Amino acid sequence: MDNKKSRAFLKWAGGKYSLVSEIRALLPDGKRLIEPFVGAGSVFLNTEYQDYLLNDINPDLINLYKILQQKPESYIADARALFTPANNDAQRYYKFREEFNLSTDTYHRSVLFLYLNRFGYNGLCRYNLSGKFNVPFGRYKKPYFPEAELYHFAQKADRATFVCKPFAEVFSLAQQGDIIYCDPPYAPISTTANFTGYAGNGFGMAEQNRLADCARNTAFSQGIPVLISNHDTQQTRQIYAGASLKELKVGRYISQKGHTRAKVDELLALYQS
């Protein structure tokens, strides 16, 4: 595969675009790549497997991917229609956000989802406890309409099956010849981060441990390799005992308070028998 990288059409917190070269270098050969936490799909877009099984727990995300896979032309035309200067306005944004939250129409929600992703603050995808999308207006000069990226994703999606299941169920679908790559919500870098920044993502340390157990069993009992990304902390190194660990110097800064900025490295844990 050439060194030119493909960008995802969604803005995504924690997206793997900047790390795809390192991830790709560690992914073993296989027929099918399984991603239990596909997110914006940077690893999918920048690898070459025969087939893909792509999962996310967010039904809005998976429904969008299925619609783009099945009818790219009409989806892209309808999504483009919302990318106008008049719609780059707080009042319009909140009107569309409310429309999204009230709608039960899968297609309409998928069109609005891309608008909210590009016009909302920092490309965040966040819902309140009632399941309502609650990201505020982003105040960007001119949000970018990712037409080329949408077409590229749709074209590559011919090789993909999209599902919306808990990660453990996705692991149970793995067969010989599969490779699994996991990009879960990251473990907290401190107890403070655990309480503030990560509260409510529904993926605590119990889930981190369960994911590591799934990876260990799948790799060592079934011979299916599993690669996991996470923060490089003492806790994650303990959780991933038995895996081959590679530290990445990412140079992102995570800050709870302005005067306590700390450089955070990432870890790639490869389970392979």
Rank of each mutant, 00 (worst) to 15 (best):
Y121D: 03
Q91R: 11
T196W: 02
V163W: 01
I254L: 07
Q234H: 11
D56G: 08
P185M: 09
Q238L: 14
A174E: 05
H108M: 02
R261K: 12
S42G: 01
A81T: 06
V170R: 01
F145W: 02
L124K: 08
V163Q: 01
A174W: 03
G204Q: 13
L26M: 14
H108N: 08
A219T: 12
R7V: 09
C125F: 13
I179V: 15
R32V: 02
L173Y: 10
V264K: 01
P59C: 06
D89G: 01
N134R: 06
T233M: 06
R159V: 00
V43N: 06
Y127R: 06
A262T: 14
L54K: 07
T196S: 12
E35L: 06
Q91E: 15
R210A: 15
H231K: 10
E169L: 05
E169D: 15
N88G: 00
I254G: 04
Q208F: 04
Y115H: 01
Q175S: 14
S18E: 15
L10Y: 04
L112S: 09
D56Q: 10
D213L: 10
K246C: 10
G202S: 12
L245R: 03
P188A: 14
A25R: 10
D105S: 06
G197S: 13
G177A: 15
L26T: 02
H152K: 13
M1E: 14
G223R: 11
P72C: 11
Y151V: 01
R118T: 08
Q155M: 07
V226S: 13
C182S: 10
I254P: 01
A154W: 04
Q234M: 11
G204N: 15
C125W: 07
Y75D: 11
L124C: 09
D213G: 04
I228P: 02
D29K: 12
Y75A: 13
S103C: 07
H231Q: 12
N122C: 13
A154R: 03
L68K: 05
E98P: 00
Y198R: 05
L10C: 08
P36M: 06
R109M: 01
F119W: 02
I62S: 08
N209M: 13
G41D: 02
R92M: 14
E247M: 04
I57K: 08
N122H: 14
K5Q: 15
I228W: 02
N230H: 09
Y107H: 11
L268G: 12
N194C: 11
N46E: 04
R126A: 13
H259F: 14
A174G: 04
V43W: 01
P225L: 12
Y115D: 03
K257Y: 00
Y94Q: 04
K16H: 10
V20D: 05
K246Y: 02
V135D: 03
Q176I: 10
D183G: 00
A8C: 07
Y17C: 04
Q70E: 15
Y186G: 09
G14S: 11
A79K: 06
Q235A: 15
Y253I: 14
S42L: 02
E73L: 13
L211P: 00
M205K: 03
P36F: 09
K257D: 09
S221N: 14
I180G: 07
D232I: 01
R261V: 11
A243R: 10
D51V: 00
R24D: 04
E266Y: 09
P146V: 09
Y75M: 11
N63I: 00
S244F: 03
F145K: 03
I228T: 06
